[in-house]
Design a protein around this nucleic acid. Structure first.
Lengths: 336, 336
DNA sequence: TACCCTTACGTTACGGGTAACTCAAGGCGA
DNA sequence: TCGCCTTGAGTTACCCGTAACGTAAGGGTA
């Protein structure tokens, strides 16, 4: 009996008049016991309210645990919310649990989190992005469990990955806007230490503009969460610093909607006076009076696929190690 | 060496030429060893990449684990997203982790989830709502760990609780609307088996209307997630079934915004032709052209408080067992 | 010199479950 | 009647860390 006075298998066995081993066999339905014995054991399990201690089983090295470490930046916008929902629902359907860690975009925090979670012997690991500290990479490599890097598609992942090519996505939007005749481009996003997915989109956007012979004015990178209000004053900053910007690409739809509000407040018409493009096809985009030009990404599916990859590997299946879920550019009425 | 060929403390100790116990003392900085010994041990820890197996420690009953089971309905709207964010950030700040479970509003699913999570010996449990299966309640009572019921304020919780009185919140809105002169009231929400918080708000609303001598037409309860589109067609359903509804109270702001869109599509003016009230003061409300009448609730704070209560109890502090965070009715321009 | 104390370790036992092995009783065929 | 197989158990060892206790060497004290 431990300090919480929880019932152990030994007590159940003693009460039923059998050995621990027999009780264990009954509980695992392994066979090799009489019906009479099974009934006695199960009756005591019920009576004593026995709950197995899974820690002991995993500790003994006989099975793996049933939780998967999941590291995401945070839940500030709907995107990772949906990724997380996809992961947890899929894991839950297979009796697995999510052990969550919100690590902003800090590699240090992620490293510490990985170290702690690994010490609990998770069944797998799902981490966001392709950038990790060297020690974190080393730990993930040596952990001997399935590891999925999500969000950023990456042809040579630590173990597996599912996501999309953000550079391509940014390039596609830049080219789309250039084809609509724009020549002077703006960008509003948020700033992070790490080279992240949004930075890759900006790079792609910049490249597309160069290829088309257009001009990208100095991007506005805010130190803030990518929400409505930052979109509002980020746009203010951009337009104050540069004249003649014809179209603005935002890090995501929340920022873009904030930008729309700011432009309308100034009396500008969209898309006549200025074009607006977002990213993520977030719910907010769906309820704008006019359809926002954006890029749709299967957030929920990324989460589901990541969970599936971990689960398949646990079950011993060999599977495709990298999945590119792609993106779909949604032409809207907020650009010409 | 176990099957994952992970390094054990015994190996580190052998490599350093000391006993397991000495290595253990060095790692826990317990004292009672020479500097020379410490350096030898730490050098081997580095060299072998030793990661302690926390399972063994907890299993041995010496300490508690560092993860907290958190059961929420889901992440369908921003409300529980923020609650979860509050919980995980607070836990993370104290080196604890969230073990997540999304249990829709199913008590069965919650019960199974609680059973599994308890078998991992969590340091605490945070569950949503006051309704749980008898077996779930029994397990939580007997677990010997801090348990916090969030969302619904409840003066006699299983262990602790933090939330608000949803009946009061609904009553307040009903009275507010009655005071503005409305007499014929509608309600649009979603349907769940369990008596949940939204049902309590509806009860309060109904009571306020009765007390004011008004009429509540048959509420529309959809079997759907409470998002924009259900708000749209729920309103359609309500207005088709009943004439002369003057104001509609929605389960949350997402539904209310869907309702606004439907009414505007019909050519109705808000609030001249119909009043609209939501709940939750969700981000969507902030970007409506006119301020939505709603009720603000400190979502993030509920999560933070719940995590704090668990952490305080783990540290052995005696704390207030119930916290009512209250609500604030936000009068807007969508009612007269 | 005898005694005690401190320092720096080592040894043993334990927690809860399971794999691998052992063992007794009964049935059955030759 | 003997040997062999099957069924239904029990016994032992182990997983990895830590609490509790044991101990040898060296220093200080009366």
């Amino acid at each position: 009996m431990n300090k919480n006075s929880k019932v152990s298998l030994a007590e159940v066995a003693a009460a039923a008049g059998v050995s621990k081993m027999t009780a264990s066999r009954v509980l695992r339905e392994e066979g090799g016991y009489s019906e009479q014995t099974r009934d006695k054991v199960m009756a005591e399990v019920e009576r004593l309210g026995y709950l197995p201690n899974r820690l002991a089983t995993v500790f003994a090295g006989d099975t793996s645990s049933t939780f998967v470490g999941v590291s995401i930046p945070g839940l500030g916008n709907e995107i990772f919310t949906q990724v997380l929902e996809g992961i947890d629902r899929k894991l839950g359907a297979y009796q697995h649990q999510t052990m969550l860690g919100m690590n902003e975009h800090s590699l240090d925090q992620e490293e510490r989190w990985i170290e702690t979670v690994l010490s609990w012997k998770p069944a797998g690991l799902i981490v966001t992005g392709r950038a990790h500290s060297p020690k974190a990479v080393h730990m993930m490599r040596g952990a001997g469990i399935p590891v999925v890097e999500i969000w950023d598609y990456n042809s040579s992942p630590i173990d597996m990955c599912v996501g999309l090519d953000h550079f391509d996505s940014g390039y596609a939007m830049g080219r789309h806007l250039a084809e609509r005749g724009y020549q002077r481009f703006g960008y509003v996003g948020t700033f992070h230490q790490t080279a992240n997915a949004a930075a890759a989109r900006l790079s792609g956007y910049r490249k597309a503009i160069e290829d088309a012979g257009g001009t990208l004015v100095q991007p506005v990178l805010l130190r803030d969460v990518p929400g409505f209000y930052p979109g509002h004053y980020g746009t203010e900053q951009l337009l104050a610093a540069h004249r003649g910007v014809e179209v603005i690409y935002y890090q995501n739809d929340n920022l873009a909607v904030g930008g729309i509000h700011y432009c309308q407040k100034l009396g500008m018409s969209i898309p006549e006076d200025i074009g607006i493009a977002g990213w993520g096809d977030m719910p907010i985009a769906a309820i704008q009076p006019v359809r926002l030009t954006s890029t749709a990404v299967p957030h929920l599916r990324i989460g589901q696929l990541a969970a599936e990859m971990v689960l398949s590997r646990i079950q011993g299946h060999e599977i495709k190690k990298t999945r590119d879920v792609g993106h779909v550019l949604i032409p809207g009425a907020t650009v010409l």
